[in-house]
Simulated assay, not measured.
Amino acid sequence: MAVRHSIRGETRTLFRKAFLSAFDGNACSRRVILAGVLSGVLAPQTVSADAFPGDLLLFPELTSLHRFDLKDGSSLKNYWINPGLNLFYGLDQDRFRFLLEWLVDRSAQEVQRLQLGWRWQDTTFWVGRFHNPIGYWNIHFHHGAYMMTSITRPGVMTYETSGGPLPMHVTGLYVEGVRELGDSSLYYVLNAGVGPDLEKKRLDAFDVLDPEGTRLPAVTLRLGYQPVSFGSDEIGFSFSYTEISGRRIGVDRINQIVAGVFANWRSENLGFLGEAFYIHNDFTGGASEPESDVLNFYGQAEWRVADDLTLYSRVEGTFNDNGDLYFDHFRNFVRDRYMGGVRYELPYKMALKLELSREHTRDDAFGQVGLQWSAVFP
């Protein structure tokens, strides 16, 4: 037990040091204050490891991507290697809840989720920065790579820091709960807050430690039906409305509606996850075409061949996005993908993944080979 406590203590010390050194700039004082608060939460004044409150998880990963058949002058790299570490901490005490998710990799060094919650009966009220509950993928698979069967996320579900076209993070109020209906249940989520700003190359989600940029309102409603309460099978829909400053693309504002349906089904050895999205952009001020409509879908199938071996495949498609004022801004958005892969479970909650795909972006079409090691350490 003493060894266990020592490891946890060293982990918390390293986290605090890394948290402080990872941030700089104009928001330094705010970040130092937040780091001090988190240090107090994560380092209880007790000598018993069993008394450590909450759950602290580390999700390290090492991802290597090799692209071939790129066009001459492509903005994409032939070879990309990305080490990353995702820290997740959750605390659930009586009615009080706290959640922190902090990510460091080559594309992001920031707090991805920071939530304070209060539970009342079957409903929890959160305030902070959270994952926008658009569809299924974005609330079930977070930044820890080990949680996903695949290496890549669907193109439409790509995070803002990696060039994704939709708001994946919102800051404000988040309400979630479940209503049991006999053996089944209805899971509901409603959030309201501020969405991203549109920078030169990507969306910029609101940073609670550096709240700069033009921030406009965002609202999302999600309903999911589970035939077996708290099971994996689920069907449902989501509706999101976000206002985004459009000065980077020559308009005053983009009023964006994202409506989607999803279905997730699992048996002992087989699984399927599919989503379809209708994306409507209404441009105000300066646009030659005042609105646009884009359709997107993906479907992922999985086959668990053995306890430690899973085969998977995913197909993605986007329609009516060519020449779209908004989507033309995201040049590296993966609009179409045909992918297959294998995941092998290693001891001590580690996994190796190999993934082969053919992908289409706005300016390019290429093949890709991905290799990833990922893990979770309690």
Rank of each mutant, 00 (worst) to 15 (best):
R106W: 00
G164Y: 03
G155W: 01
L114A: 12
F141T: 06
W102D: 13
W137L: 11
Y159K: 11
V104Q: 08
Q121N: 11
N132H: 12
S162F: 07
H169Y: 15
M147L: 14
M168K: 06
H140C: 01
I151T: 01
H140M: 10
E176S: 13
E180P: 05
R113C: 02
T171Q: 10
V175G: 03
D183P: 08
N132G: 05
I134V: 15
G135D: 09
W120A: 12
P165E: 10
P133K: 11
R113N: 14
W137V: 15
G128F: 08
T161F: 14
T152P: 00
L173I: 15
E176N: 15
H143L: 09
G144L: 07
G128L: 09
T171C: 11
M168C: 08
N132F: 05
T149G: 02
S107Y: 12
Q115A: 07
T171K: 09
R119I: 00
M168A: 12
L116N: 01
D122G: 00
R179K: 11
H131P: 00
S184W: 04
Y146H: 15
Q121F: 01
G182W: 06
L116S: 08
G172S: 10
G182N: 08
S150L: 03
L103Y: 00
N132W: 04
W102C: 02
R113K: 13
Q121D: 12
V104L: 12
R113A: 13
W102Q: 06
P167M: 08
T149A: 07
R179S: 14
G155A: 02
F141P: 01
Q121R: 14
N132E: 13
G128C: 09
V170S: 15
A108M: 05
E110P: 01
L181C: 10
S150V: 01
Q112P: 00
A145F: 03
P133C: 09
G117P: 04
L181F: 08
H142W: 04
H143I: 00
R179V: 10
H140A: 07
H143N: 13
W120N: 04
L114F: 15
V127Q: 02
P165N: 09
Y136R: 13
W102R: 01
G155E: 04
E160F: 01
F125M: 11
P167C: 09
H143A: 15
V156E: 06
R129P: 00
R113F: 00
T124M: 01
Q109C: 11
